[in-house]
């Protein structure tokens, strides 16, 4: 009876466990294994190179580090511009209770769209020859500002970063707004009675209480922006000349372009470890935020 009972319990978890082991655990182990080999993904033989792939990533692969810098720059734009926008909008909506639901509905439209759709639509708007943006600039008398936004090395990365921020600010907005609404209104009332003006209560009440939320949003932004790549596939495919390459695109290129499966896995591990460090910080901070 007892054994039957236990077997029955396993029946509940076994579909999940089987899929998880086959499609998560096994690939997870293989990443670490394959990272030590040079293998083209087809031949039955593969040659063991130890940490050779990692050595190549860290000391020889200039494009990889350029990709890291690009992703870092996109993340910087997202952390500053995107999150400042998200916070300002949330703060404005928190005051304006009336139309709040309408704005909340609209601002989360870009996040629910796919990166492919967003990337292709913006690519069409930003097109150098036939794009609407250049058309408007020319008509408004700023013809000198019109350019090939996505194929000019000077603007490509920033343009991609701005579109990425456009797609992502809704997340931060929702989380900030939820955070702002947990601040008891009595605090503001009390501050006003004590003679504080709007700026004082913003600085002394809103900002300190929102710091844990801001930390959370920042870390989610870092994780999301460092790994962004589908938007880039849809807009520039890494061009012009590596100017919008990002790490995940490099992993994809190692695998599909140069058929170096081992090297692709090693890149994945190196990148994953950096992201894990960020995840760990997130875990620590959110624990701290919850405990206090």
């Amino acid at each position: 009876m007892r054994i039957k009972n236990t077997l029955e319990n396993y029946l509940f978890v076994s579909p999940a466990a089987i899929i998880f082991i086959i499609f998560y655990v096994i690939p997870f182990i293989w990443v670490f294994q394959l990272g030590l080999y040079e293998w083209d993904g087809i031949l039955p033989t593969r040659s063991f190179v130890g940490l050779g792939n990692f050595k190549e990533i860290f000391f020889e692969d200039k494009v990889w580090w350029q990709a890291m810098r690009n992703a870092g720059w996109i993340t910087v734009i997202a952390l500053t511009f995107q999150n400042a926008l998200a916070f300002l909008l949330a703060w404005a909506c928190d005051r304006q209770i009336k139309a709040k639901n309408f704005y909340r509905l609209i601002f989360f439209i870009p996040p629910v769209l796919s990166e492919v759709v967003v990337g292709l639509v913006w690519q069409w708007i930003l097109d150098g020859n036939y794009g609407l943006l250049n058309h408007w600039l020319t008509n408004a008398g700023f013809a000198s500002l019109a350019r090939n936004w996505l194929s000019d090395p000077a603007t490509a990365l920033n343009t991609v970063a701005i579109v990425h921020s456009w797609k992502g600010f809704g997340w931060g907005f929702l989380i900030f707004l939820a955070g702002l609404q947990t601040i008891p209104r009595e605090l503001y009332e009390a501050a006003r009675v004590d003679g504080a003006n709007a700026w004082d209560s913003f600085r002394r009440i809103t900002i300190p209480l929102m710091i844990p939320v801001a930390v959370l949003v920042s870390i989610l932004t870092i994780l999301g922006s460092m790994q962004a790549f589908i938007l880039i596939i849809a807009m520039t495919d890494g061009g012009p000349a590596y100017h919008t390459q990002v790490p995940v695109l490099r992993i994809l290129a190692s695998m599909r372009g140069s058929s170096r499966f081992g090297y692709a896995c090693a890149q994945g591990i190196s990148f994953g470890l950096i992201l894990m460090a960020v995840s760990f910080i997130q875990y620590r901070f959110s624990r701290k935020a919850r405990d206090t």
Partner: peptide
């Protein structure tokens, strides 16, 4: 399961392809 949720593996599509 929880660990899988927290650990990012950016290149996981490579072994998945092999599998």
């Amino acid at each position: 399961f929880i660990a899988a949720m927290m650990i990012p593996i950016p290149g996981s599509f490579v072994p998945l392809y092999v599998l």
